Simulated assay, not measured.
Amino acid sequence: MTQQHTKTDQAPAAPSFRTAKFGIGAVVRHRIYPFRGIVFDVDPVFDNTEEWWLAIPEEVRPRKDQPFYHLLAENAETEYVAYVSEQNLLPDTSGEALRHTGIGEMFVRDDAGTYRVRDRAPN
Rank of each mutant, 00 (worst) to 15 (best):
W53C: 03
S94W: 03
Y69F: 13
W53N: 10
N48H: 12
Q66K: 00
H100M: 07
H70S: 04
T93A: 13
L90C: 01
A82H: 00
Y83A: 03
E59Q: 12
R63E: 15
A97I: 00
N75R: 06
L72D: 02
D47T: 14
D47F: 13
L72S: 06
A82N: 09
V84H: 02
A76D: 15
A73F: 01
E77D: 14
E50R: 04
T93V: 11
N48W: 13
T78R: 11
L71C: 02
R63Q: 14
F46Q: 10
T49H: 13
T49A: 10
N88H: 15
Y83S: 07
L90P: 03
F68E: 01
N88D: 13
P62E: 09
E74W: 01
E77Q: 14
D65M: 10
L98Y: 14
W52L: 03
F46G: 01
N48L: 05
S94F: 00
Y69M: 06
E79C: 12
A55C: 13
Q87S: 13
R99H: 12
A55R: 06
V45C: 12
K64V: 06
A82Q: 01
N75V: 04
E77F: 06
L54M: 10
Y80H: 07
V81N: 14
R63P: 13
E79D: 14
E50H: 11
Y69G: 03
E51Y: 03
E58L: 05
W52E: 08
Y83T: 03
L89P: 04
A82F: 08
T93G: 12
H70Q: 10
R63S: 11
A73W: 00
G95P: 03
P67E: 04
V84T: 14
R99D: 15
N48R: 06
T78A: 10
T78P: 05
V81A: 14
Q66H: 05
T49W: 07
A73D: 06
A97P: 12
F46M: 07
R99S: 08
N75T: 05
L89M: 03
P67T: 01
R99I: 07
T49N: 01
W53H: 13
R61G: 10
T78L: 10
E51C: 01
Y80F: 15
P91A: 09
T78S: 10
N48P: 00
V60W: 08
R63W: 11
I56C: 07
W52F: 15
P67G: 04
P67F: 00
I56A: 00
G95L: 12
G95C: 07
F68D: 10
N88T: 14
A82I: 04
L90R: 06
A73I: 08
L71K: 03
L71A: 05
R63A: 11
P67N: 06
L71Q: 02
R61I: 02
I56P: 11
H100S: 10
V60P: 00
L98T: 12
S94Y: 04
D47W: 15
P91R: 04
E58N: 00
P62I: 12
T49S: 11
S94L: 09
R63L: 12
A97E: 15
D65C: 11
Y80G: 12
L89H: 09
F46W: 13
H70M: 07
E51D: 15
P57V: 06
S94D: 12
R63T: 09
R99P: 10
P91W: 11
L54I: 04
F68L: 06
